[in-house]
Amino acid sequence: MSRTPQEIFESHVYAGAVTRNADALAENFTVDGVFEAPLMPAGAAFPRRLVGREEIRVGMAAYYEQQAKDVRSPNLEKSRYVLHTTADPDVFIAEIDTVFDGDGDGGDVAVSLVQIFRIREGKIARLRDYFAPELMS
């Protein structure tokens, strides 16, 4: 069954940023899927490159476990995104402004990023996630 870019994107965000469910996140990818964060420095807590559904599952589970003390979740009412389709029907781009509620010490924290999705048979074959690395520390 083929899913729309909207459905794929929403499933990815819910599994990752909202629920931090590495199993559900990995299931959004093809068996040989690639999840990349090209701007991350080597050795960072957030994985720079994960290849294959199982490596994505294990790598993101480890990251989510490390981040368990960070209870911030995105404020979905304040956050915004725009999906851009391309000439290639298997590629779409997500332009995202995620807002995290302030922790009492200050105002909201906004994180802007761009994700490029390459899809195969309704699953993510490759995802490139571009964001400022210091936001993930």
Rank of each mutant, 00 (worst) to 15 (best):
I124R: 08
M60V: 06
M1D: 08
R128E: 09
V91K: 14
A62Y: 01
A132V: 13
V13W: 04
A15C: 05
Y63M: 08
L113V: 09
E55F: 09
R118Q: 11
Q67D: 00
A45K: 10
A15G: 03
S112E: 05
V82H: 12
F117P: 07
Y14G: 07
G122Q: 07
E7T: 07
S137M: 09
S73M: 10
D32M: 10
R80V: 05
M40W: 02
E36C: 00
D101Y: 08
L50N: 02
T98S: 08
L113H: 09
D88K: 13
Y81R: 13
T86N: 03
G122D: 03
E55K: 12
P5Y: 07
I116R: 13
G102H: 07
E10F: 06
Y130W: 12
D129P: 00
R126W: 06
D88C: 06
Y64P: 05
A17T: 01
F35G: 05
G59V: 08
Y130N: 01
L39Q: 13
L113E: 10
I119D: 05
M1T: 12
T98L: 09
H84V: 07
R72G: 01
G52L: 14
R53K: 15
E10R: 15
V34E: 12
K78I: 03
L25N: 03
P5M: 02
T86R: 01
S79C: 13
E10L: 11
P133M: 10
I124E: 02
G102N: 01
T98E: 04
G59S: 05
G106W: 13
D129E: 01
R118N: 07
P41I: 09
A22H: 07
D32E: 14
E121C: 09
S2I: 13
A87G: 15
T4S: 15
P47R: 14
Y63S: 00
I116L: 11
D88N: 15
G59P: 03
